[in-house]
Design a protein around this nucleic acid. Structure first.
Length: 586
DNA sequence: GCCGTTTTCGGCCCGACTGTTTTCAGTCG
């Protein structure tokens, strides 16, 4: 059993104990333990093999260590089984709804017999929810919105879950199926969609039947849905659907194009082909007049055969890419290698896992030219945010590290809260001396659009705020984005010289692709940031680059693609002049 | 349930925000 699953179970235990009314400190102990394991760099299963005691992890004592040991060695936990048996099966689901905590969950269960999401909806419809004391119309409306949000997400799989699974399967087939070749992931994963309905793979093979057999033997596969000589689909453990197409090598290029999609892109591409007198299908191009088949050996050739510039998968959204391609104006999309630094990184001074030294060293090893250490401000009590006093010590330590790494610029930074009224967590005289100031929303996310827009605009008007962090505050599959007039805000960002962050944390991907494209068109300087909370978190920049590519970004649109000297000039430029300065660098 | 130690039990994070009520409880991060 891997750490993620153990973390999940301890969190469930904490939730259930909360409903049960257990002492708050016991509950906290389970939550702390879950968090500690989540942040711990080693798998407990490996620790067990090496004979290491789980209690060396801070927050794990005797009782929880025993439970973790039982989980790792047997895959089950008796305590968990008997605890969960005390509750109706839907209770955890109900508590996952934002706005419903343990107290409300318990009351819904005891007073209304609400034990599932469908019964919750019923209670909203028939008014019994609102009849509970303390529950008014606004609460009722909010819960209804949350339910709708959950339903909209449905069975989609977030990219950061789907991509590693797809990678694992490709690796498995490469290692265990010598007759399978050209194994690739396609579909939404290849287009870098933020979530996908299923994991799609393709390959070629001289022996498709045996590929199907090996595919179904993968340990993650639970139930086969359908099998054919050239196609197999199945469900994985968490109900995730996965399919594999085995195609003829002669057609691999056109099949790759076809299965990569999107549907809209493929329709438009076929229409374009038809306008040139071709029929386009999975097996390539055929001349309409003569019926002559045109051989296409790879995907690149397919596009060029149609007189088109190659269109990278991320742009295949059916939103103008074919027209751009015809005009030879497909952007030269930003690549991970273009990034020269990272400007949003946490350390164990606030809620990060690793020390400042470790984070700086990790950035140094990646040959970054600059790095901003941006721990949370004091408003984030839970995240161990920095008081003004601690911030001063923080800055001093950063400056010391900066001297230790002459090849890299280590910038003092902060991720500072934008309060509900648009005021900021630190006063101007405090942030004036900070090199890189991120302002982010972490509270009061449910404000109406007008209030929210004014709140953010007020923060942007501060001359010391360099960038807005994860503007929409969404968490994929978990939390809805804020309501605001984004176009107005993007224009205001360009006007005030406030950069906007493309937050690469896979749970966020915020801004989203369409917003990136709009902000880019409006000339807003954009920053791709990892928002790393550990040294490994820096790797997430790859996700930020992927989503930026979907937003049609080139390196010239990304502030942290600037080499050190130019980035320094950008920083020294008065904020009101930065948009113009940045645009002039091309 | 964990931790630190005052080695046997007391202290453990808390401020912002919302909705409801009208002084506060519940939720969130």
């Amino acid at each position: 059993m891997d750490n993620n699953k153990i973390v999940e179970m301890f969190e469930d235990i904490a939730d259930l104990l909360e409903v049960k009314g257990e002492t708050v400190f016991v509950i906290r102990a389970y939550r702390n333990a879950a968090r500690a394991i989540d942040k711990y760099p080693k798998q407990l299963s490996n620790m067990l093999l090496e004979g290491q005691d789980f209690r060396i992890i801070p927050g794990i004592g005797e009782a929880i260590s025993d439970k973790a040991l039982e989980l790792v060695s047997t895959g089950r936990l008796q305590y968990y089984d008997s605890l969960i048996a005390e509750f109706p099966s839907g209770i955890l689901e109900i508590m996952q709804i934002s706005g419903i905590g343990p107290k409300t969950t318990k009351r819904l269960w005891n007073e209304l017999n609400v034990t599932s999401l469908s019964k919750l909806e019923e209670s909203l419809d028939n008014g019994s929810f609102i009849s509970l004391s303390g529950m008014g119309k606004k609460t009722s409306d909010n819960i209804r919105l949350q339910l709708q949000f959950q339903r909209d997400i449905g069975d989609s799989i977030p990219l950061h879950v789907a991509r590693p699974l797809a990678g694992m399967m490709v690796d498995f087939l490469k290692a265990n199926c010598s007759v399978a070749e050209n194994i690739m992931w396609v579909g939404g994963i290849r287009r870098f969609e933020e979530s996908v309905k299923e994991i799609k793979l393709i390959c070629t093979s001289s022996n498709p039947e045996s590929v199907v057999t090996v595919f179904l033997s993968m340990p993650e596969i639970r139930d086969a849905i359908s099998t054919d000589t050239h196609e197999v689909s199945a469900y994985m453990d968490q109900g995730i659907k996965v399919s594999l197409q085995i195609v003829d090598e002669a057609y691999i290029g056109s099949y790759l194009q076809y299965f990569t999609g999107s549907t809209q892109h493929n329709i438009q591409l076929r229409n374009h082909a038809a306008s040139l007198g071709f029929t386009l299908n999975e097996q390539g191009l055929t001349r309409m007049d003569s019926g002559e088949y045109e051989s296409v050996t790879n995907e690149y050739d397919l596009y060029t055969s149609l007189g088109l510039q190659y269109i990278p998968p991320e742009l295949r959204q059916g939103s103008g890419e074919i027209l751009a391609s015809m005009g030879n104006s497909i952007p030269n999309l930003v690549r991970i290698a273009d990034l020269k630094g990272d400007l949003h990184d946490h350390t164990n001074w606030s809620d990060g896992r690793d020390s400042m030294e470790d984070m700086v060293h990790a950035a140094f090893q990646k040959n970054f030219q600059y790095l901003a250490i941006t721990d949370h401000s004091s408003g984030r009590g839970i995240a161990n945010g920095l008081s003004v006093d601690r911030l001063a010590k923080h800055v001093k330590k950063i400056n010391d590290l900066d001297k230790k790494y002459p090849s890299m610029m280590v910038l003092s930074g902060t991720e500072m809260d934008i309060r509900s009224d648009g005021s900021l967590d630190y006063s101007d005289d405090v942030i004036e001396s900070i090199d890189w100031v991120i302002a982010s929303i972490h509270s009061a996310m449910g404000q109406d659009s007008k209030t929210m827009t004014e709140r953010i605009q007020r923060a942007m008007n501060n001359p010391n705020v360099d960038v807005l962090g994860h503007l929409s505050t969404r968490l994929l599959g978990t939390r809805k984005p804020i309501e605001a007039d984004f176009e107005f805000l993007f224009k205001a960002a360009a006007d005030t010289g406030t950069a906007l962050e493309i937050n690469a944390s896979p749970e966020r991907l915020d801004l989203k692709d369409s917003h990136i494209k709009l902000a880019r068109e409006l000339g807003v300087p954009l920053v791709i940031s990892s928002d790393a909370h550990s040294t490994e978190g820096i790797e997430n920049l790859e996700f930020g680059v992927g989503i930026a590519r979907r937003g049609w970004c080139e390196a010239r649109h990304i502030v942290n693609s600037l080499p050190r000297n130019l980035f320094l000039q950008y920083l020294k430029t008065d904020k009101s002049e930065r948009t113009r300065f940045f645009a002039g660098l091309v």
